[in-house]
Design a protein around this nucleic acid. Sequence first.
DNA 1: TATGAATGAGCTTTCATTCAT
DNA 2: GATGAATGAAAGCTCATTCAT
Lengths: 223, 223, 223, 223
Amino acid sequence: MEEHRDSERPRSRRLPREVRERQILDAAVEVFAKHGFHNASMDEIAETASISKPMLYAYLGAKDELFIACVRREAAKLVEAIGADIGEVATPADQLWHRLHMFFEYVQVNKAGWQLLHRQGDVPGEPYVQELSEWRERATDLIAALLAEATTQSPQPMQSEQTEPFAAALVGAGEALVEWWFQHPDFTAEGMAMRLMNMLWLGFGELVEGRSWFPTAETPTPS
Amino acid sequence: MEEHRDSERPRSRRLPREVRERQILDAAVEVFAKHGFHNASMDEIAETASISKPMLYAYLGAKDELFIACVRREAAKLVEAIGADIGEVATPADQLWHRLHMFFEYVQVNKAGWQLLHRQGDVPGEPYVQELSEWRERATDLIAALLAEATTQSPQPMQSEQTEPFAAALVGAGEALVEWWFQHPDFTAEGMAMRLMNMLWLGFGELVEGRSWFPTAETPTPS
Amino acid sequence: MEEHRDSERPRSRRLPREVRERQILDAAVEVFAKHGFHNASMDEIAETASISKPMLYAYLGAKDELFIACVRREAAKLVEAIGADIGEVATPADQLWHRLHMFFEYVQVNKAGWQLLHRQGDVPGEPYVQELSEWRERATDLIAALLAEATTQSPQPMQSEQTEPFAAALVGAGEALVEWWFQHPDFTAEGMAMRLMNMLWLGFGELVEGRSWFPTAETPTPS
Amino acid sequence: MEEHRDSERPRSRRLPREVRERQILDAAVEVFAKHGFHNASMDEIAETASISKPMLYAYLGAKDELFIACVRREAAKLVEAIGADIGEVATPADQLWHRLHMFFEYVQVNKAGWQLLHRQGDVPGEPYVQELSEWRERATDLIAALLAEATTQSPQPMQSEQTEPFAAALVGAGEALVEWWFQHPDFTAEGMAMRLMNMLWLGFGELVEGRSWFPTAETPTPS
DNA sequence: TATGAATGAGCTTTCATTCAT
DNA sequence: GATGAATGAAAGCTCATTCAT
């Protein structure tokens, strides 16, 4: 309640290292997400974290490293969210559906983190590109594996050379769809996942015919 | 450092405004594409354009404006490429196929321009955000219209609220696929377009069954 | 006359590169000599040079490089001063005497430059140590060569292993004597050189006896 | 980083003040000698002393004061070493010889302390300048007195105005010779002292003739 | 007493931008 | 029209120093 008045902000001094670190990361994620890597200033991050700049540097290093730490944390969250163990699930399609659903739910809850991961420029030379491309890669692999599994029973099982670009495209589609979602926030995470699943599984050819895809079971809540 | 080469840099003075402007834009696109908006320096652009900085500013204004001019030009090229008149085409699917094909061909020929459009950070506050989102919007609209048209004959015609997110996702998928392409450059533009068309039209459900989509006619070359 | 009033200092803008560079070096030498490398601030140097900091960096690079440039220039002056061609001189002793004389005269005229070279801390790790040790080395070599020449006629000619430490010690003695001189400025350069030459050539054993060394000819003025 | 070793760093708490102070000074001398006043950080000193920074400040004050304390201690050691009572010695020359010998032995044993005294930048404005110049002054006085004594029997006894600069030069020569010694560590302290004594007492004029100076007695070990 | 945690203040460096010629 | 030369303004980073426990 008093935190808002700058003059008397107690700044809760003397926090244990771990707490401060999380506090700083939270602030950094927020600021980086809002302004992007380049326009974010260490000053603003320090201020947002209610900490002085020397502490900022002492805890998480220079701007590059701080940003990378943010990406790493948020990427871990994301990958964990979509890769969570969901137990026995009937079909690969259902697997995929669940994971898409979990993805959109993750985004809904972790908006800042998502923007951090999604909205940075992707230019070689940036110190963080490596780290940024890694989460996409991991997400892609995860999906590619699912797709591969889905075709094992098929007459013509797909090789990774086929599933990989498909997975990459799906990731791209998901990212784009999230952006669209942000501008049409009335939809639920489930609705968005359904949309994407339909495109993906049925294809437009079938959608045109009025068919739709439906899950065969309820989405389990990841423990 | 370069003082020695002064003699061989004619700098072709006194060019007509139009030529100079194109010269500058070419250089700017190249540099912006290579380093991204933030890491690109006006110095490097001026040098690449073989022009002095004051001229750079005189012709195309400040960094923001210059970047926007670049985006505008490249976006126009792109939209023109995928929106080109392709005459009478049998089906909406073929229409889409043609346009995808033209898209990948555009990217192949216009790599720098494409990277300029695709690789910038997408953070509110950046002066160019508006301009950047516009080309995506135009591409999306174009595709959404196609999709809508494809369903007019269907029992349940789609409204824009349905086609639009689909189109947005498709654009995202296309962008991601291009990135994948850059890392697997052995494929042809046609091959990539085919890939995307298959995902899009058949969906994974059918692909799994071993079915594929094929165009019903040759791709016309846009004049 | 008006230079003193900061407000209306014209700052003589638009100087050709060469002039500016000298202007900057002059200022830098002055400031570095006054405060030492570490306590000198780029701000003060810029201000002393009547130039903005960006120009300072554009012309002579970062602080390290600037300092090294100063050292290099002043060291060159010094070495040139004591190594100048002095034509045919009767004996090695006279040679040495002339050079000592020229050394003290150099210091007198180039006080700031001398302090720059002499007063910096000599700690490994400093970026400039290399450069600083070089001038001492060159001076030492020059003197060692002289000493060696002086003994060629002697029954036991000296090897560099003997002349070198002697020369090093002489350089150290000279430096220390200059410091003493600064605190007793009434003496002339010639007087100081005479002092040093006496110590060096006669040694204390003879001085005690009341003997003195005298040059056999006038000091020529180096062209 | 070091958190893991906490168990094995006893830090011997609750030491008597005197012991702690010596512990700190030892560390400080080491660090200051290695990096110089400016590049030495209080952090490193505290760490080297196995003490926390607040304690560091509590015991020996701010960086300036700490450095001065170091200089004072090491200067005292040095002056004591070269000024030690050596009983009845035949001649002033022998006196000097003994003291030079003791000086080089001191340096050999006290390398860090010596570097602390010798290698700092000598710029007015540094807080420690006063203290640094003092030891030189004391050493100079000590030597000047010796020289004066040596000439009391001479036909023309020297006044301090003559011996003082000579002594200053000798100190400078000694310092320079020590640096040379560090780069040629094969020589003994006695050998170095001999070298310097020869230069000093005989002078180059006589050395050229192949003469050398020798002590008339063994160096006594200062108690 | 002893310290982990904290900061004010300052430094170097680098842009985008514009005079003055 | 064209440019070498110039700068305001701000960013990242680090240090000596001190609370609060």
